[in-house]
Amino acid sequence: MSKFNDGKKQRIEPGISTASLPDIVFMLLFFFMVATKTRENTSSLIVTLPSATETGKLEDKTPTAYIQLGVPTKKLQKVYGDKTSIQLNDAIKSKKDIRMFLDDKRASIKASYPDAQIGASKAKKMVVCLKVDKKTKLGVVSEVKEELRDASALKVNYIVNEGK
């Protein structure tokens, strides 16, 4: 090599250009924004889901409302006791609040569409996802289901872990 460079100036290796790095990262960013959905809510309850095999997946973009049932976490047990409680959005609420929660949810689904008619039909399609701890007594679950019927939210999806 040196005989070709004799008498000439030492060549300096050019650094790798990082100009396209932002583009790559932005591409990743957009991918994740499209492929994922934002976390619905953090849990204040201990919910261990049961397992089942005959499950289905909700269509993308189906409007959903989440209701969780379970025992409050250790930290919150001082405040809420250790009985099975109901969580709507981020807070532990009582059975009576379910109706208002569902009405609010439907109103917000409706409002998120510019066309009132489409909004109304989307609100009708709302599915209530129940995340229930597997040790919960059925009495409590059925009380919640009665509330759902009262609020005429009839589409229910029991969230489970897939498989045995």
């Binding site: 976390r39 289905g56 909700l58 005429s152 589409k155 999806n157 489970v160």
Partner: peptide, 15 residues
């Protein structure tokens, strides 16, 4: 965000 899609059992409650 979360990537995993939840699976569930669907039920239509009686009116």
């Amino acid at each position: 965000s979360e990537m995993t899609q939840e699976s569930g059992m669907f039920q239509l409650l009686p009116e």
